[in-house]
Simulated scan of single mutants.
Amino acid sequence: MHWTSALAIYVLFWFLAVFLVLPFGVRTTHEAGGEHIPGTAESAPHVFLVGRFLLRTTITATVMFALFYLNYVNGWITAGMLDWSGVSRDV
């Protein structure tokens, strides 16, 4: 795999991880015991720590990419294993 392909796949995993990590560790103002500010959504986080969010996202994306790359190198799961239609595509 060329390094640019690996980088592009890692970026895809990173953006997927953004949506996986986003809901975890979020406490609303009500849950934190604070006073609701008019004009804000009740589901908005009380404090959004960007650094912690980016770190969690990067760690999650790195683990996912490492598993992907190990599968790519070792061939644990191949495209042929995922074809459940029973139709042979060998040409």
Rank of each mutant, 00 (worst) to 15 (best):
I59G: 06
L67Q: 14
A41N: 12
E42A: 15
L54S: 02
G39E: 09
E35S: 10
T62I: 13
F68G: 08
L49V: 04
T40P: 07
E42K: 07
P45N: 07
T40V: 14
A66Y: 04
P38Y: 10
R56P: 14
E35C: 09
E35H: 09
V47N: 14
F48D: 11
A41K: 11
S43G: 15
F53M: 01
L55Y: 11
N71C: 12
H46R: 14
T57W: 02
F68R: 02
P38L: 11
F53G: 01
G51P: 03
R56K: 07
T58V: 06
A41S: 11
L55T: 02
A61C: 04
M64N: 13
V50P: 03
S43T: 04
L67S: 11
L70Y: 10
P45I: 02
P45V: 05
F65E: 04
G51R: 00
L49D: 07
F48C: 11
I37Y: 15
A41D: 15
V50I: 05
T62P: 08
A44V: 01
F48N: 05
F48K: 04
H46P: 05
P38S: 10
V50W: 04
I59A: 06
G39A: 12
I37A: 10
L49S: 14
A66T: 03
A66C: 06
F68Y: 09
I37N: 14
F65K: 04
R52W: 03
T60R: 00
A41E: 12
H46K: 10
A44C: 07
A66F: 08
I59D: 03
L49H: 10
M64F: 10
F48R: 04
P38E: 08
V63A: 09
F68M: 15
E42V: 11
F48L: 05
H46W: 09
G51F: 01
N71M: 04
T60P: 00
H46Q: 15
A66E: 10
I37F: 06
V47S: 13
L49I: 13
F68E: 02
V47W: 08
I37D: 15
F65C: 01
F53D: 01
A61W: 01
T62K: 12
L54D: 00
A66L: 08
L55M: 10
L70P: 13
M64W: 08
T40Y: 06
I59C: 14
Y69P: 08
H46D: 13
S43L: 09
V50F: 10
A61Y: 00
T58R: 05
F65H: 03
L55A: 14
F68V: 11
T57Q: 10
H46T: 11
E42L: 10
R52G: 12
L70V: 08
T62E: 11
V47P: 05
V63D: 05
T62W: 09
E42Y: 14
M64P: 03
R56L: 12
N71D: 15
M64Q: 07
F53R: 00
E35P: 02
V47H: 06
A61V: 00
T60H: 02
T58K: 03
S43K: 15
H36E: 07
P38H: 10
E42N: 12
I37M: 09
S43Y: 07
L55E: 13
R52T: 03
L54N: 02
L49G: 14
V50R: 02
A61E: 07
T57N: 12
L70A: 13
L54V: 01
L67K: 06
H46M: 12
F65D: 02
G51E: 03
Y69G: 07
V50T: 09
Y69R: 09
E35K: 07
V63S: 02
L67M: 07
